[in-house]
């Protein structure tokens, strides 16, 4: 039984780091700030959650702390990305020329 849980834990760790790695690749490949923030937020959230779950399987006595770290992450990670995205928009970060629509910029009133 213990061996099976160890294997599941190891698999979760590998999967988590794989998502984190893809996040890194995405940061490199995406063309502008907003797309990079998107990749960064989603992959780090799931990647870290999976890594935490893996760690919980390998060290069951850490479970409670890991769960708290996970909850904290779920609340703070998207929030910081939103603040970053808003700050980037308002300070006039370079946007992709091929953006399909920009209904935020179309609004009356100067936001920059």
């Amino acid at each position: 039984m213990g061996a099976i849980i160890d294997i599941i834990g190891a698999l979760l760790l590998v999967l988590g780091t794989a998502f984190l790695f893809l996040g890194g690749v995405g940061l490199h490949r995406m063309p502008d700030v907003f797309n990079r923030i998107q990749v960064g937020t989603k992959t780090t959230t799931l990647g870290t959650l999976l890594t935490l779950a893996g760690a919980a399987c390998l060290h069951p006595d850490w479970s409670l702390k890991l769960l708290l770290i996970g909850l904290f992450l779920l609340f703070t990670n998207p929030l910081s990305s939103q603040v970053l995205a808003r700050a980037a928009y308002r300070s006039g970060a370079k946007k992709m020329a091929t953006m399909v629509t920009d209904q935020f910029g179309d609004e009356p009133g100067d936001r920059s």
Binding site: P31, T98, D102
Partner: peptide, 8 residues
């Protein structure tokens, strides 16, 4: 890299 970004 099939993206089609925009702000709605």
């Amino acid at each position: 890299l099939p993206i089609k970004p925009g702000i709605v």
